[in-house]
Amino acid sequence: MSAMIQIKNLRKEFGPIVAVDGVSFDTPKGEVLGFLGPNGAGKSTTMKMVTGFLPPTAGTAVVCGHDVLKDPIAVKASLGYLPEGAPLYGDMTPEGLYKFIAQVRGIPRPRRASAIDRVKSLVKLEGVMRQPIETLSKGYKRRVGLGQAILHDPPVLLLDEPTDGLDPNQKHDVRRLINEMAQEKAIILSTHILEEVDAVCTRAIVIARGRIVADGTPAELQARSVRHNAVRLRVRASADAVESELKQIATVAGVEREASANGVARCLVLAKPGAVIAGDVAGRVRAKGWAVEELVVEPGRLDDVFRDLTMSPSAGSRS
């Protein structure tokens, strides 16, 4: 698999502010890369540089073999881009907009109608194709924007917060669409919705203050959570007894007590990094003869990882 998007040491300064500070990564075909980070971390700026909209201060991006500094038109031709907030010409209809995009993108006249039809059914715009875009709901507008990005069936897709502002059903539809296209394309999507990463991404990059602070599969990121492999436990026993008993296990890092009632203790047993504690915890509970109401292994929370990575003072340095 050759990389369809190569980002090489991209850097962008706005006056004294360094928005993007040396970001590099490659994205091969078939990968859906989730670009994560708090607002203002440099996600959108990085995307704008890859699309050739903003000139980088240093570094470059190569899309399908074309260097964005040397041949921006070829780069723009080979990618589809949904800008942040999906800006659209409000006075046009989706149909008018798509005809315009199709013409600019050089889709031959006989194939334009079928290309527009294909997108119309992919992003579900039946019935609103002849309505001015400014009269459409936010969800429709976002889908119109997504539609223009995939009209020419580009090998590379850059989507800046594609599901922002959509309701849960619409989010589901957009994610399904991204999953369907994933095999044939290299896709980068930025988001600050972490469940999205689980739902669609094969790889996640976390960026904070213009630098990459983590790069891995969603599962790898989850494994960095303090709650990774933690055991959620609900047993019939006194909370004090449970805590003191379980703390004696060598691989247990700690016990977080949660609200207990009616003689039922609830707690979260945290594992030491890399340790698997479910077996030991279950064994100890059985040995004490406590009746188990719940025993679940936690995969870890991306939220925690995200917060740790982007809030800690060392967030600026690579880890």
Binding site: I73, A74, K76, P83, P87, L88, I101, V104, R105
Partner: peptide, 14 residues
């Protein structure tokens, strides 16, 4: 103002 300049200038035209 609307931001469509980003749409226009990321199309393959100079």
């Amino acid at each position: 103002r609307v931001g469509t300049v980003e749409l226009l200038l990321t199309l393959p035209i100079s």
